[in-house]
Amino acid sequence: MNPATAMYIIQALHGLAYGMLLFLVASGLTLIFGMVGILNMAHASLFMLSAYLCYQVLAFTNSFWMSLFLAPLITACLGLLLERFFLRKVQAHGLGHIAELLLTMGISMVIAESVKSIWGTESLVISIPPSLDGLASFAGIHYPIYRLFIIGLSFCILALLVTVLYKTKLGKIIRATASDPGMVSILGINTPKVFAGVFALGAWMAGVAGVAAAPMLTVFPGLADQVGMDAFVVVVVGGLGSLLGAFVVSLTLGELNSFGVQFIPKLAPVLVFGFMAIVLSLKPNGFFGEGDH
């Protein structure tokens, strides 16, 4: 194959891998926003925490699969606790979204500092599990298996999410709660429980993304800010609360990042925010946004 074509394909795959990871983080963020109008500032911190947990579980068990199972689970439980003992209480104050934004910001600070004191400020090296190491070759293109694994894993979770949301009764309830919590609660459905479930689900997905990203990205205390900012852009540009928007924009951002780094390395970060600025100037509520909450 033509080397230039191969390069394009490889860059596109890089973009896809990062884009899918981003989607795993952003989808939880946007679902939570759709349901209660909270933009959870601590969401990316959960993602980072999971990457660190992956490191820890690896150190104990030496099994990547074990950490892929355990770390997201712990993250989900933590998410559940955060929702139950912090967010839900603050919602009762009736101060509106400012209180929730600040609370989650405070939580993210606490998580970041805890991570620093437990694991230090140095970046940790997490090696790719041997079974997924190496390059896959196809039609003259050599591509890391691990990244293909990430892409595959993300699509599995995406499929799972879509099935749950659009094929099950639970999904119907979740989507109805997202569009009109008051009405659903009148119908006799325990909305706080549904919301707690979604919060945990979002945290779990962020956790999976964290473990998957750990061998690919550098694990350091600034990881939350780095990925969180991209996830934030995804949610805002895609339209607050829109899952489809999050998907489309995640992939766009992934590709933008990947090709940006390749062709205009100096301006790559500006590209992302420039993209956001242009979209928002034309559509202040994002691509698929429906207006205010």
Partner: peptide
Amino acid sequence: PLLVRVTGTAFSMLTMAFGQLMYVLCIK
């Protein structure tokens, strides 16, 4: 013109987004 069209959380997010844009631009 942009900000008066949105309210609530969307307003907060938009201001934050442009704040970040400026941050990145200034570094670059």
